[in-house]
Nucleic acid binder design. Structure first.
Lengths: 141, 141
DNA sequence: ATAAGTGCAAACGTTTTGCCCTAGC
DNA sequence: GCTAGGGCAAAACGTTTGCACTTAT
């Protein structure tokens, strides 16, 4: 089934139990800058919790995104990536190697646009998903 | 396997044969404004070509995107959509019903950003994928 | 004790593939 | 006649779900 709403700001109630799985997932995600996919997170936490399942990883990533503890980074035409850094920033993805890097959000971008767009299209609560791509310094060779 | 490059501007050689399947797919895509997914395109062309297969639809959509005859619209967290209108414009997607609408590209958006970003990140040929979301007039009720 | 959370395996929706057949050139 | 392209079925991929078991509260 198709899910249309990938907005992460609908905060849901915080989890009721504190589990080792959750702790490790969040820890690992916060200690890297690599914006891993669910599968990468699974590989990372498996070193500490060899019996953890993918389902648990997915369930917790989803929950953490909805409670605002992590950020989801939808990758057009690729698997979802995750970011333990929830500060407001952009991402730039290398078209060669696929790696995602942070971009500080201090530029004159997408600022006045959503309101203007709402007026012109009749849409409510307009948001803008934006992702930069390019060829990273490493891949320039 | 993961595909990182969803850029549609790497024009590949034009197809060698003209087939009925190709004609119908392109026709149908050009006659609607609804930005259908591959499955929707399949349903559309099946009325004229009941024996066509999904594989053919996917193969042709990919080829047409790479030869610049159609546009791919990656939908974050949803199936790829397609647009027979290849003129330069943005899209806005309703978070309630999932429909995609056109937005004219005449706003002061993403203009000077890529160059500046290149300087600041060391990336080459920076591009910006941008997609707006909101609640469409119909879904406001 | 209870119910939230886990692991496992199976299912899901989307997209791709291999193989053999069909049909444009 | 040659080979690009098609149909079919199966596989691949990322993700979700049902269910019985475990564990934090």
């Amino acid at each position: 089934m198709q899910r249309f709403d990938h907005n992460q700001n609908h905060s849901r109630p915080a989890p009721l139990k504190s589990t080792r799985q959750r702790q490790v997932i969040l820890e690992e995600l916060r200690k890297v800058t690599s914006h891993p996919t669910a599968d990468k997170v699974y590989q990372m936490v498996r070193k500490q919790l060899p019996r953890i399942s993918m389902a648990t990883v997915y369930r917790n990533l989803e929950m953490m995104a909805e409670t605002g503890q992590i950020q989801r980074i939808p990758v057009p035409d690729g698997p979802m990536s995750f970011d333990g850094d929830i500060s407001d920033h952009h991402h730039i993805r290398c078209r060669e190697c696929g790696r995602i890097f942070d971009v500080p959000k201090d530029m004159r971008v997408d600022v006045a646009v959503p309101e203007e767009l709402g007026l012109r299209t009749g849409f409510d609560s307009v948001e803008c998903f934006m992702q930069f791509t390019g060829v990273c310094p490493d891949c320039k060779k």
